[in-house]
Each structure stands twice: as C-alpha cells, then as structure tokens.
Simulated assay, not measured.
Amino acid sequence: MDLRIFTEPQQGASYDTLLAVAKATEDLGFDAFFRSDHYLRMGAGDGLPGPTDAWVTLAGLARETSRIRLGTLMTAATFRLPGVLAIQVAQVDQMSGGRVELGLGSGWFEEEHRAYGIPFPKEKFSRLEEQLAIVTGLWATEPGKSFSYEGEFYQLVDSPALPKPAQAKVPVVIGGHGATRTPRLAARYADEFNIPFASIETSERQFGRVRAAAEEIGRDAGELVYSNALVACVGRDDAEVARRAAAIGREVSELKENGLAGTPAEVTDKLGRYAETGSTRCYLQILDLTDLDHLELIAAQIQPQLS
C-alpha cells in the first residue's frame, strides 16, 4: 500500500510550514504530498496565519521537490472556471516535471464561499460533471486542433486547448460517499477513486459501487486505483498517542474508531484490513504540521511493513 501525506492548511499553516512538511515527505520516502483546497478554518481557532491557495502552493512545491507526487483532495469546482483550472494544473504539471494529480470535487463548504465572495450555486454536482468533461477534454485535444463544448453551465468555442501537461495523462481523483452519481462520475472520468474518513465496511461497499458502475459502461474496474483518506495519530506507546491526540483536539478512542490511531503495530494491522477491501493507497491526514517526528515514526515503523 502506498502512503501519502495529506494536509489541511486552512486550519493554520504558512507556505514555509507546508514546504517543510513536503520536504520531509520526500526525504522520508512517502509517495506524495497532497493538500486540501479550502479558504476557511473549520471548527474553533483563528486559523492564523490565514489560508494559502492550493495551486499556488503546489506550484511552489513543484520547484522545491523532485520526486513526490503533488495534488489536491479535493479542488473545489466552485473555486475556478474549468478552462482556467485546466491551464493552472497543466502549468504546475510542467513545473514539476510531470508529478501532478488533480483531485476534483463539487465544493461543499458554504461558509467559506460567503467569507470570500465566491458564488455557491445550487447545481454543484452538475457543474462538477461539466468541469470534468472540459478539463479532461482540453488536455486530450491533439495539438493543432481545437476544443469546443456546449453545456448548461459552461461553453467553450474553438479553444486551442493549451497548454498541455507534461504527463500524457494527468491522473484525476474523484471521491465521496454518494451512492449513485459519484460512482458513475468516477467510472467515467477517474483514474483513482478515493473515499474519505470511512470505515472498512463503508469503503468496501463504496468501492463495489464504483466497480459496478465501471463495468456497466464497459470499463475495466481494475484500471482504477482505490484509496482511503484517514486521520493519522501514531505513537510509540499509549502516552505518545494520547499526547498527539490532545495536540489536535481529538480523543484517542474516537481516533481509533474513525481513523488510524495507536502504535505502529496497531495502525499497520488496520491498514492491512483496508487493503483487503481493495484499497492500495492511503492518504494520511496529518493535522499537526509542526510534528515532523510523527512522519519519521510512520516512515520508519509502518511504511516498511506495507512495501
């Protein structure tokens, strides 16, 4: 199972903090550094020093790392027009030498839209579907040809469909808990399906829905990567687990039930049970971005057991 580091900078992190985590991610042998795409802190606290933009951040990290994959869980379709998003992601992919992945979701946090004057439309899922068609269509258009699209929400006329990403195909990640429309979208557009903060049983059920949706349209369900995103709280002993849980304002018992909490042996065992559902990748949500020893522990005592 691949382990990726997943951060939530809207809770309070500067670019320099994210850079330190990304460099540790690379140095410690993790597969990728991903971040959320949010502009407002969730829950208590002041969120200082304030939000950082996901794709501005990834552009900087593209030039300051050399190996790890870089991406979003999930870019909000409400934040960017699809043509602009296709340009941004293609450019960052070029800047990274072909290491970018695009997680794209409908957007859901209405309060942050109000806080920064971003429209929050009712038809978010339908807009997401059109964005996926446009972004992937622009990238797939052969050089020298143009791309047009006539949708309910977006229209493109004779776009030169430039620039192109460095990769022949930027991996697209789609995720969520929806029982019908989400699996259908994943079957059509995704290279990877991710389910966030779900139990082993829920993950298995949702992966099954995605596989069935793929087979229904004649796609090999085995082409997709199936992954989880789970909060991580690992300690060498119970006292260290409790200290890390307290640092992020969570209870150990809740984290053990809903995330990956405990000693390295306990967490490795739980990851193995997720792997039995078909999951081959886990995004470890790291909430205390100053605790790089946490990453070192996971890299030293869990990652080798999953190789």
Rank of each mutant, 00 (worst) to 15 (best):
A247Y: 05
L230W: 03
A198M: 05
E192P: 04
E215V: 06
S148P: 08
A166H: 13
P163I: 05
I248S: 01
E223Y: 01
D158P: 10
N228R: 14
L162G: 10
V210W: 03
D220Y: 12
A229C: 09
F153M: 11
R243P: 00
Q206R: 15
G235V: 00
R181V: 11
R181K: 15
A168D: 15
E240Y: 00
D237C: 04
I174F: 01
E240P: 00
A186L: 08
G175R: 02
R211S: 10
T202L: 09
A239L: 05
L224Q: 04
G176T: 09
A212T: 13
Y154G: 13
V210G: 11
E216V: 02
V173L: 13
V225G: 07
K164P: 01
A239Y: 02
G151F: 06
K169S: 12
V234E: 02
V225D: 12
E204F: 05
I217R: 14
V225K: 05
E150A: 15
T202R: 11
A161S: 10
R250M: 15
G151Y: 07
I217A: 12
K164C: 02
A187T: 10
P165Y: 13
R250T: 11
T180C: 06
G222E: 12
S148D: 09
D191F: 11
Q167Y: 07
F197A: 15
I195A: 07
E150F: 08
A242I: 13
G151D: 03
E152S: 08
D237N: 13
E216K: 15
R211N: 08
